[in-house]
Amino acid sequence: MDLIQLTPLDLSIAALLVLGLAGISWRMRLGVERRLLIAASRSVIQLTLLGLVLKTLFDQSNPLLIGALALFMLGMAGYEVMARQERKFSGFWGMGIGTLSMFISSFSITLLALNLVVRVEPWYTPQYLIPMLGMLLGNTMSGMAIALDNLTQSAWQQRGAIEARLMLGHTWDQAIGDLRRRALRAGLIPIINAMAAAGVVSLPGMMTGQILAGSPPLEAAKYQIMILLLIAVGTGLGAIAAVSLGAFRLFDKRQRLRLDRLK
């Protein structure tokens, strides 16, 4: 089966539908039409650019260029994690916590998978590295953002309870322990649900793509299984890193709760 090529005209039909939705939003005064249109335009531009960049990258297979793109994607992911926080850590830590955790959740897991599971030669073959990294970054990001947001929000709301424990001589670790566990649970539940629903309720994007591109369904399923499992591990490790770093940063050397470090 050959891939049916989409023409710009085909895409404009989908775009017209989005315009229609924006019109409805305007009529119903939902107030999201601006954001909807901006986000839709962003995805059109970003994906087109990515297509162009990947085309060049695949032709050249230059490790430096591949590395640069990978780092750029990581930086953007770190920024997105920060941008989704209601209360961000101020200064270097705001971006640092997200980027470092995304590095753990996605970079290391992707490299591990390419070397041990898929065993691509060379490991930086862009046709494998970039899509896998992108999928891991995109899918672990929200879990991490949710977990970190949950931690800082609940620390803000439960300041009194945390300090009450400090006053009684509990360590910072004990005082924030419950909140940290709750934040991690909140971050992990979406991926747990996604795994449970995979193939029954939802047909995951990667498998869909491979089937459309003509892969045998069972092969596509195997790749999808690998990716889902890696996303779960990545989300878990990344969320643990983000929440641990965040909790650590909420206290100073004298184990005082320092909410002034949030903005």
């Binding site: 009194g160 309870a161 009450a164 006053m167 009684l168 001589g169 509990h170 004298r254 184990q255």
Partner: peptide
């Protein structure tokens, strides 16, 4: 160590909090 200090200097805040 801060926990040790706070066990000795016990603060009762005006509003009590419970976890």
């Amino acid at each position: 160590p801060p926990p040790k200090w706070r066990r000795q200097a016990g603060l009762l805040s005006a509003e009590s909090h419970w976890w």
